[in-house]
Structure formats: structure tokens, C-alpha cells
Write a protein that binds this DNA or RNA. Structure first.
Length: 257
DNA sequence: ATGGTAGCCTTGCTA
């Protein structure tokens, strides 16, 4: 089962890019972030015609996550538990063919030193609590999405240039390690040790042309999923096409149970 | 050198 995640930076503006990629990559599950629309405005017809079941947690203008799957999506959880007052649409979880999959859009947190960064850290702690429950379930689970954390300096093009960015702050990296150290596996790093491989390149400044990016999109697997992990990679091609998102898809392959 | 682009609607805000 191929499971992919892609921050598309507007589902409507990116529809033709999304359709082109699902036609060629054929993921069984696709997690989308920053769909930037209400549930009713998500381009569901076009994706249903490609054979996908669809769940969305939409929001006007900002955020918004979706879960697409060839098989039916069961036991859907909308929103990250732990704060009933949180109105931002950043977390959607469901079960596809026995695998629990979460589509995650972790808060960016810029600028550092503001309530936005505090919100990021608090959200990360809630995610860690949720991950603890998923691990306790002893099921195959995949936490997929834009985590807005570059885990190490190997995951950024220039640590000095990025030093003030919320995605490299020591406290965010520490909380990311707390999450990983619960017992999750970074699927990409199982197969690729080389530094300076990215999933995101800033729109400003032609960063993709010079390959100045960040590795901030991840697939984190519970042991029961990691035991089935057969492959994982970043697909850079969509970032180089016309009208691209600033992120590109990353995917993993799980062998049949 | 502290800019620049993209997407949304709030023609400023978020990233």
C-alpha cells in the first residue's frame, strides 16, 4: 500500500497538478494539507472520478486537511484531541484497509517569540499525546504530513540562513524528538541517509532552481507499520512543474499484512 | 541584502 502526503497550498488552485500526480504515482492513500477551502468547496468530484474515497476537514482561506483513499475510510477523527477551543483545521485521521492514517498540518510557528510559536509547541505536545494513544493501540499507524520541523541541520540548505525560522528552533526540534522517541520511525530516513534532501522550497527567490529547501514533510510509522515498510522517497517532479505548490509529495510503501 | 511569491479574501494575513 502506497501512502503519500503533499501540502498542496490550495486544493482548488492545485487541482490539475494533483490529478496529474495521482494519475502517475497512483497512491492508495493521499494525505493533503493546506487545502484552503471549506469542505463543500473541495474538488471532490474530480478525485472521486479517479477512484478515491474522500474525507476533508476544511477551513476558509487557511489550513485544511484531507484524506483520499482507494478503499473506504473508516472511524474518522476530525481535529487533534486536547483543546476544544482550537478552531484551526489541521488534523484528520481515519482507517484505510486496516491502517490508521493521520493527515497532519502542524502549525508553522513563525515568527518565533510570538503566540504563534507558543501555539506550535502546544500543538506538538497534543500530537505527542495522540501518538502515545496510537502506539498503545499496537496497530499499524502512519502519521503523515507537513510537520513544519526540519529535524536536523542536515535537513536544511543553510542553517545560518534559516536560524530564525520556527522550523529549526531547538525547542521545536526537541519536541519532535520526544514524538519520535515514543517509538515512531521516520520512513524516509530508513532508506536515505544522505543529507540535504528536501520536500519544500520557498516560492520566493527561485529556491527550487538552486535546490535550497527544507525537509519538513514526514511519514512517521508505528512499529506495526514500520515492520511492513518496503520503500519511501520524495518525488521532486511536481515541484518543478507549472503552477506548483511550494511542497512536493513524499510517500512510503507498506507490504501487505 | 531583512527582499522576494503565492493564495485567499481580510486589498492584509498566512506561509
Amino acid at each position: 500500500m502506497k501512502i503519500a502526503t503533499w501540502n498542496v497550498n490550495s486544493a482548488k488552485a492545485r487541482l490539475s497538478n494533483i490529478l496529474a500526480w495521482v494519475d502517475e504515482a497512483k497512491p492508495e492513500v493521499l494525505c493533503l494539507q493546506e487545502i484552503k477551502c471549506l469542505d463543500a468547496d473541495f474538488p471532490a468530484l474530480e478525485l472521486r472520478s479517479r477512484g478515491y474515497h474522500i474525507e476533508t476537514l476544511g477551513q476558509r482561506s487557511y489550513n485544511g486537511v484531507a484524506l483520499l483513499a482507494r478503499a473506504p475510510i473508516g472511524d474518522v477523527l476530525r481535529g487533534l484531541p486536547g483543546d476544544d477551543g482550537d478552531t484551526q483545521a489541521r488534523y484528520l485521521e481515519g482507517t484505510v484497509a486496516g491502517v490508521r492514517v493521520a493527515s497532519i498540518y502542524l502549525p508553522n510557528g513563525n515568527p518565533v517569540g510570538t503566540d504563534k510559536y507558543d501555539y506550535k509547541l502546544a500543538w506538538m505536545r497534543r500530537l505527542t499525546a495522540r501518538a502515545r494513544d496510537l502506539l498503545d493501540s499496537e496497530r499499524a499507524c502512519v502519521l503523515a504530513g507537513d510537520f513544519n520541523v526540519a529535524p536536523t541541520d542536515d535537513d536544511v540548505y543553510d542553517p545560518l540562513a534559516c536560524a530564525k525560522d520556527a522550523v529549526v528552533q531547538p525547542s521545536a526540534r526537541a519536541e519532535f524528538r520526544v514524538l519520535l522517541n515514543l517509538g515512531l520511525v521516520d520512513a524516509y530516513r530508513v532508506f536515505h541517509a544522505e543529507p540535504h534532501k528536501y520536500t519544500y522550497w520557498d516560492h520566493y527567490g527561485r529556491k527550487f532552481l538552486s535546490d535550497e529547501g527544507l525537509r519538513i514533510d514526514h511519514l512517521l510509522l508505528t512499529p506495526q507499520a514500520a515492520d511492513r515498510l518496503a520503500a519511501a522517497d520524495i518525488d521532486r517532479a511536481p515541484r518543478g512543474r507549472d503552477n506548483p505548490s511550494d511542497h512536493t509529495p513524499i510517500w512510503c510503501e507498506l507490504a501487505d499484512a
